[in-house]
Simulated assay, not measured.
Amino acid sequence: MDNKILGVDIGATKIHLGVVEGNKVIQEVQFPTLPDASKEDIIHNLINGIESLGDHDLQGIGIGVPGLVDEKKGIVFDLLNISSWKRVELKKHLEDHFKIQVMITNDANVFALGEKIFGKGKDYRSMVGITMGTGFGTGIIANNKLYSGNLSGAGELGSIPYLDKTIEDYCSGKFFREQYNLSGTTVFKNAEKGDPEALKILDEFGVHLANAIKTILYILSPEAIFLGGSVSRSFKYFEASLYNSLESFPFKKILEMLVIQTAYTNNISILGAAALIISEAENKKDSNKSLSS
């Protein structure tokens, strides 16, 4: 893990690049995502950003994106908030230019894998990472490995129908905006002041999140669930209602063993993207051991 790896987080509003050595980001740069720019211009900006970090002897480049990905071919589909990125052979573009390995997956997968390798998830064979911000994303670790499914679409639990809408509408920042016409930040700040209405709203949020977690338990039964994203910073205000609502889950032994924690690893998007390269190298080692034994 001492080799340098480039982690890239392509977000809806900005692109964040960082050189990872060991468990630290030693150099980074970020610049705005241009939603109306051409596919070629965005790729050009990305290459320039990578080159601006200097001539590092990189082991590889790992990338997280808010969209679907053919991970084997490194093709990105329908990238959120970038209208020109309907089908981009990003892996080929970058590997042809830099002559090193490039791996790409969905950004929620990056969060989960980053927590597994660099954060609180190290001790768990099975875990789920949930990001709650403008949306609701989940990444799955099964038997110590990222499970991303076809086109990195595994774990898109936010799209599951729930009440009159979807899980995402009730378990992300959308809940505060759509149900109460408030931002999550405003609700959190008001809760910090002891505002009864804000505390009531966060209690309600905890009930909805508990229902989403029950779905995760039925499908995956992980050892641990780690909460990230801006909404998770209000955890202390919805923790009690979440656990109270989880009591209706029928398999009590699973609940007793379940760990639910917030995760605030610095630069997790960059570290998680770099973890794609680390994980691939470890998988190859395991395969070689199996072949030789």
Rank of each mutant, 00 (worst) to 15 (best):
M1Y: 00
N3G: 10
N3Y: 10
K4M: 13
L6D: 04
V8D: 06
I15V: 14
H16C: 11
L17E: 09
V19L: 11
V20E: 07
G22H: 10
N23E: 14
E28C: 10
Q30K: 14
Q30C: 12
T33M: 02
P35A: 03
K39A: 03
I43N: 04
I43S: 06
N45L: 12
N45W: 10
N48E: 15
N48S: 15
N48Y: 12
S52Y: 13
H56E: 13
L58T: 09
G60E: 09
G62V: 04
P66E: 04
P66I: 04
G67Q: 03
L68A: 11
V69L: 09
D70Y: 02
E71T: 11
K72G: 06
K73G: 06
K73L: 12
I75V: 11
F77A: 03
N81D: 09
W85L: 01
W85D: 00
E89N: 14
K91Q: 11
L94T: 05
H97S: 12
H97T: 12
I100F: 10
I104F: 06
N106Q: 09
A108D: 05
N109Y: 12
V110S: 04
E115A: 02
F118P: 07
K122H: 11
Y124V: 05
T138C: 13
G139M: 03
N143T: 03
G149E: 11
N150S: 06
N150C: 02
G153Q: 08
G155P: 02
G155Y: 08
E156L: 04
E156M: 09
L157H: 07
I160P: 09
P161H: 07
P161Y: 04
L163S: 12
D164K: 15
I167W: 01
F175H: 00
F175Y: 13
F176P: 02
R177S: 07
N181F: 08
S183K: 12
G184W: 03
F188G: 02
F188N: 11
K189S: 11
A191H: 04
E192S: 05
E192L: 08
K193W: 01
P196R: 01
E197M: 01
E197T: 02
I201A: 01
L202I: 01
F205D: 00
G206M: 01
A210M: 07
N211G: 05
A212M: 10
I219D: 07
S221R: 12
S221A: 15
S221V: 08
I225K: 04
L227E: 09
S230W: 01
R233W: 05
K236G: 01
F238D: 00
E239M: 00
L242E: 03
N244V: 08
S248E: 15
F251R: 13
F251D: 15
K253A: 15
I254L: 13
L255E: 13
Q261W: 06
T262E: 08
N266L: 13
L271H: 03
A274Q: 10
A274M: 07
A275I: 08
L276A: 00
I277W: 10
I277C: 06
I278S: 03
A281Q: 14
K284P: 03
K284C: 03
N288K: 14
S290C: 00
L291D: 14
S292I: 13
S292K: 15
S292Q: 14
